[in-house]
């Protein structure tokens, strides 16, 4: 167990370093001189030189990288080139809405996926199974932006639900209403994968010895499925849902952009297209770190749940 966690941490470190390098690189490749940009349009040559010194742009690159890491550790991610706000502040604004959106999508998509998956596994080979699997493969194949476009056009356009951004936090009525369409959009691409995972996992468990024993004891098929099948199948499913946060993240960048949802993903896209490198760097950094932490957490929980993991490498 401890070894497993240590192992996961070991993997996370180079990933973190990689993320930091990308973040650092982003600040290096600015097409226009960062000192000139941050000095503003009315700056003189002397101003720019002063800022260059102040930003440490004259130092060797490895030292700059080291300093960059130190700054990041102190949560100093620099200032946005456009708004001149601290990047950390900007992320503070956007982190909440993104987490909210992911939560609201997971909360309905994961149970629905598990339900459909176990239904398919129980009726393995029947038309229900085939229908659910067909639906789920469609779910994996549909571009998330298409679902969003259709929802905006037909549900939003009919005046049924708001779609023009976040009207408040999740626990207020206005906030709740405004999150429905984005969460439906984002969650809908998640149901399919979860259903497929559950089905495969259930089929494996249902074929296991202890389930056969349970059946032999004369338990009803439903009880067997629920008590032995689902419960044991859920461990890998829950883990995989955690690991699929990356998949969800991909969808959330698109969903946020479409629904004017003020989250990290939309900020990242906006920062990249407007060449606001410090902000882009901060957004990518926070997305990667968030993803890493969730992965790590899920992994640790999994290791706790499943005793077999203890010794196996990865």
């Amino acid at each position: 167990m401890a070894r497993h966690i240590a192992h996961r941490l070991m993997i996370s470190l180079p990933v973190l370093l990689g993320v930091l390098m990308i973040g650092f690189l982003l600040l290096q490749v600015v097409p226009t001189d960062p000192a000139t940009v941050s000095a503003g349009p009315s700056a003189t040559k002397a101003d720019i030189a002063a800022i260059r010194l102040q930003m440490g742009l004259d130092q060797p690159i490895w030292l700059q990288f080291f300093k960059y890491i130190t700054r990041v550790l102190q949560l100093d991610l620099g200032r946005s080139m456009i708004s001149n706000r601290a990047v950390v502040d900007e992320i503070g604004f956007t982190l909440g809405p993104t987490v909210e959106l992911m939560f609201a999508s997971l909360i309905w998509a994961a149970p629905l996926g598990i339900l459909l998956g176990s239904l398919a596994a129980r009726r393995h080979g029947s038309w229900i199974d085939r229908a659910i699997m067909a639906l789920s493969v469609m779910g994996v194949s549909v571009p998330v932006f298409w679902i969003g476009l259709m929802l905006i056009q037909h549900v939003g356009g009919a005046g049924l639900l708001p779609f023009q951004g976040r009207d408040g936090p999740l626990w207020t009525l206005a906030g709740l209403k405004s999150i429905v369409l984005p969460a439906v959009t984002l969650g809908s691409v998640f149901v399919g994968p979860v259903a497929r995972m559950t089905r495969t996992s259930m089929l494996e468990t249902l074929a296991a010895d202890y389930v056969r024993t349970a059946r032999a004891k004369g338990l009803t098929e439903w009880k067997v499925t629920m008590h032995h099948g689902l419960r044991n199948a859920l461990i890998p499913v829950v883990t995989l849902i955690g690991l699929q946060i990356g998949f969800l993240l991909g969808g959330s960048v698109v969903t946020e952009t479409m629904f004017a949802w003020p989250g990290v993903g939309r900020m990242a896209v906006g920062a990249i297209t407007s060449s606001d490198f410090p902000l882009a760097q901060g957004a990518i950094l926070i997305l990667a770190i968030g993803f890493l932490s969730v992965n790590l957490l899920v992994d640790v929980i999994y290791a706790g749940l499943d005793p077999r993991i203890g010794s196996a490498g990865g």
Binding site: I11, S12, P14, V15, G18, V19, I22, L25, L26, V29, P31, I245, G246, F247, L249, G250, V253, A268, V269, A271, I272, T273, F277, A280, Q281, A283, I284, L287, A288, F291, L292, N295, G314
Partner: peptide, 24 residues
């Protein structure tokens, strides 16, 4: 290990990061 590291990145982040570094 290298593969694990790559797998630890959500695909969309590669897209965002690379677009940011070498341009859209």
């Amino acid at each position: 290990r290298f593969v694990d590291v790559l797998l630890s990145f959500p695909p969309i982040l590669f897209g965002l990061a690379i677009a940011a570094v070498i341009g859209t």
